[in-house]
Design a protein around this nucleic acid. Structure first.
Lengths: 211, 211
DNA sequence: AGTCTAACCTAGTGACTACTAGGTTAGAGC
DNA sequence: GCTCTAACCTAGTAGTCACTAGGTTAGACT
């Protein structure tokens, strides 16, 4: 993933671009937007800073493209798994498992997406915008499944949004924790998410809720 | 809260220090550690940058003191509310309500604590250290209550830690969302947190869990 | 072998950062 | 009213940042 050859070799545009994207994803994941410098991204992909600008108009442009790519990948995970005629619980469990499998296979992509952008309000607005479009697409999937909508969106719009916030909080929290505890098997993380989210939703819907 | 007088007035040390802390909390909440500049903190508290250094040794020192203060306040909320002889569900509900009441009354403190520090690994390590000590204190409260320990820590150490991660994710997620939807009444946010967390835990413990 | 594109470089610019040395002055205490 | 502390200032330093103008050269293609 991290290229860097000792006797510096010339690459074609696509390969070099990919190496810059890899290095940038890793560094954005490790340090966030402000903490990741173009100098360091260039160094890690084995070139000097001007080369980065041969491929991306600005740091902001580079960041946005990566955001969009990784969010699209995670969105795809939902679209491919949250379908079928089986019971909602099964579909949710399958989606969670696939979601954490993506996180496991792409350790830096998730960390980059879930990090705070901290600092530049422009970057923050961009992050929110891209995240919101992803959220909309996934919540659209929920809404298409009448059974699930009944469970999640018990109080229409705002209830659905709060359910999303709760789910995002749990999935993000577990994902970030899992990065630091890689020895924990995925099934255990998925089971924790299911117990935290699905059992509560189901019971709440059954009229056993708190408030 | 934001001082700034038109005809600049001289303050005594304690007052000026408080005005700097207020401005810094707000700016750290809005922009994160890296995005908040000493120049801007000074400007918002009505002085020039050197004055900040009359009160704090460095930006890092200022940040740490604020972290410790606000974490201690939230820790106090738990200590004062998660006690008593009433059923665990009541104690959790009371604690959540008090926790969100603090968030409501101190809109910037929470945002500062829950923001990513993004960038300087030194600052990140500091944030983790202070947060971990707060987590330890609160988890100690849980462990002192045998009923609750039975529910939360069903699989000993790691289970307790994962339960903490889930709870933190939900509370933080709801808190950050609530900042942007202040018209939502606190009782609704608390009820959502209770339904998401307590109902799931209780049922999971009762053997109705997923995995 | 010669050509020419594009991958890559050196050497900067200007803006911003945390932080400081040393001087000025408001205003409390006598 | 005078003094003297400390609250506050001006005017910097050195480092880092994103970004660029313009030149060099590897290596694909003929």
């Amino acid at each position: 993933m991290n290229v860097e050859a000792q006797p510096r070799k010339r690459m074609n545009a696509a390969t070099r671009r990919a190496s810059i994207e890899d290095a940038a994803t890793t560094l954005f994941a490790e340090r966030g937007y402000q903490g990741a410098s173009i100098d360091e991204i260039a160094r890690r992909s084995g070139v000097t800073p001007p080369v980065v600008y041969d491929h991306f108009a600005s740091k902001q442009d580079l960041y946005r493209r990566l955001l969009e790519r990784h969010f699209a990948e995670l969105r795809g995970v939902w679209r491919e798994n949250f379908v079928g005629g089986d019971p909602p619980g099964q579909r949710v469990a399958r989606s969670f498992d696939a979601w954490f499998a993506y996180i496991e296979a792409h350790p830096f992509a998730g960390r980059m997406l879930f990090r705070d952008t901290t600092g530049d309000p422009k970057i923050e607005a961009m992050h929110r915008e891209v995240a919101a479009s992803s959220r909309g697409a996934i919540m659209g999937l929920f809404a298409d499944q009448p059974d699930v909508e009944k469970v999640i969106g018990s109080e229409v719009e705002q209830g659905l949004e709060m359910a999303w916030i709760v789910m995002r909080g749990v999935l993000q929290g577990l994902a970030m924790w899992w990065y630091e505890h890689p020895q924990v098997p995925r099934e255990r993380v998925v089971a924790t998410a299911m117990n935290a989210l699905w059992v509560g939703w189901e019971r709440t819907q059954a009229g056993e809720g708190w408030g």
